[in-house]
């Protein structure tokens, strides 16, 4: 039996919205540790890893490890039927072929349940090692989303260059070029607006903007995004979900033509 209750049900909807454009079908892994998913996009260019710890739920029960294969698009459609302030409960039997989503309105006046059929999905699990990155930038997630969107009007790729003073995002295209530099600054009153650069050595890597724009769909999950880079390694774009876990995206840098 798997049962998980989340007062802020809307969190799961935001998570689905941040994954469904990249991944069609995937397995949610339920264990006593929590609720997790690892999946590559269909072209195997990027990897998503999301994790919600069991202690972040209001109630969490998982008697046996369970892998729930779902169409993310269909699960997102169901979660769209949940009210913004609804409490969400997920339930699945150990040997069952479906998962039930129950939505309770805050005043308990409306209770609905939606059942989603599960699918058998063959998924390849990759081991993600802990890495010390050359540079890690923490910045407002909305700022990162805006930069990726704005630069997409000019080019297809972005060069992200980190120095101790700031992080520069650059692109070029047929119509011209663009640069946006974000400088590190702290704000005691508004920590969500600060830019923190933790740099061991300068690093500059090029990435496909199309993927970064997909990652930025996670912006509603967190005020801040953490971008970690090392030479010739995939970038990690991580959104922390307060008191619960994170969603992290991995993307390999482009090699110069």
């Amino acid at each position: 039996m798997f049962e998980a209750r989340l007062t802020q049900g809307v969190l799961l909807r935001k998570l689905l919205d941040s994954m469904k454009d990249l991944v069609q079908d995937a397995n949610f892994d339920c264990s006593s540790t929590g609720f997790a998913l690892q999946a590559m996009d269909s072209s195997h260019v990027s990897l998503i890893h999301m994790q919600l710890r069991s202690d972040g739920f209001d109630h969490f029960r998982c008697d046996r490890n369970l892998s729930m294969g779902v169409s993310l698009n269909n699960m997102a459609k169901i979660l769209k039927c949940m009210g913004n302030d609804d409490v969400l409960t997920m339930k699945a039997e150990d040997q069952g072929d479906s998962v039930t989503f129950m939505f309770e309105s805050a005043n308990q006046e409306r209770i609905s349940d939606f059942e989603l059929k599960l699918m058998d999905i063959d998924s390849e699990q990759l081991g993600i090692p802990d890495t010390d990155y050359s540079a890690t930038v923490k910045m407002p997630s909305a700022e990162f989303a805006r930069i990726c969107k704005d630069l997409s009007t000019i080019g297809d790729t972005v060069l992200i260059a980190v120095t101790k003073d700031g992080v520069r995002f650059s692109t070029t295209g047929d119509i011209g070029s663009a640069n946006v530099t974000v400088r590190s600054h702290s704000n005691v009153d508004k920590p969500e607006e600060q830019v923190v650069i933790d740099m061991q050595e300068p690093v500059a890597l090029t990435f496909a903007l199309r993927y970064l724009n997909s990652f930025a769909k996670a912006t509603p999950l967190s005020n801040q995004v953490m971008i970690s880079m090392s030479k010739e390694l995939p970038v990690v774009v991580q959104y922390r979900i307060e008191d619960m876990g994170h969603i992290s995206y991995y993307l390999a840098p482009k090699i110069e033509d």
Partner: peptide, 14 residues
Amino acid sequence: LPGQRGIKSFFAKK
């Protein structure tokens, strides 16, 4: 995508 490496080559299979 030209010049784009896949992600699998960076991580070991579990």
